[in-house]
C-alpha cells in the first residue's frame, strides 16, 4: 500500500488488507496473478501494457470487464470460465480480481489526493 496512505490509517486496517490480498493471491500461480494485474491495470489506465499471455482468453475477458463495468459481465463470461475452472476456483478468481483491482485503484488515486 502507498506509504502516504498507510501512514494515515490504523495499523490493523493496513495489516488486514495486506493479509486478505496475500490470502487470495496465494491461491493462484504467481504468473496468473501478475497477468491478471497487468490486464486490470491496462484497462484502468487505458494503456496497452500486456506482455506474455499466461492466462486464458476467458480469464482475460473477465479481468477487463471486471475493471471496466462489473455489472455488465454476462452469463457467457462465467460459463466460458466454467469450461476450465471449478465454481470454487471461479469464486477465488472473482475475489482475486476484487483485491487487485482495488489495490491498483488505491495506488492511482492516493498519490493524487493525499
Amino acid at each position: 500500500m502507498n506509504e502516504s496512505l498507510s501512514g494515515l490509517l490504523p495499523t490493523d486496517v493496513v495489516r488486514n488488507w495486506d493479509n486478505a490480498l496475500n490470502t487470495v493471491c496465494s491461491l493462484f500461480p504467481a504468473s496468473t496473478v501478475e497477468q491478471c494485474k497487468q490486464r486490470l491495470l491496462s484497462t484502468l489506465t487505458n494503456t496497452d501494457q500486456i506482455g506474455e499471455n499466461a492466462i486464458s482468453s476467458a480469464m482475460a475477458a473477465l479481468c477487463e470487464q471486471f475493471a471496466l463495468e462489473v455489472s455488465r459481465i454476462e452469463d457467457g463470461h462465467i460459463a466460458e470460465l466454467q469450461d476450465e475452472m471449478s465454481d470454487e476456483q471461479i469464486y477465488a478468481l472473482s475475489n482475486l480480481l476484487y483485491v487487485m483491482d482495488m489495490q491498483l485503484r488505491l495506488d492511482l488515486i492516493a498519490k493524487e489526493v493525499l
Binding site: 473477465l62 462489473v70 462465467i78 471461479i90 469464486y91 472473482s94 475475489n95 476484487y98
Partner: peptide, 9 residues
C-alpha cells in the same frame, strides 16, 4: 466495493 466480486457472479 467488495460487492464487485459478488456482482460478477
Amino acid at each position: 466495493s467488495q460487492q464487485k466480486a459478488l456482482v460478477a457472479l
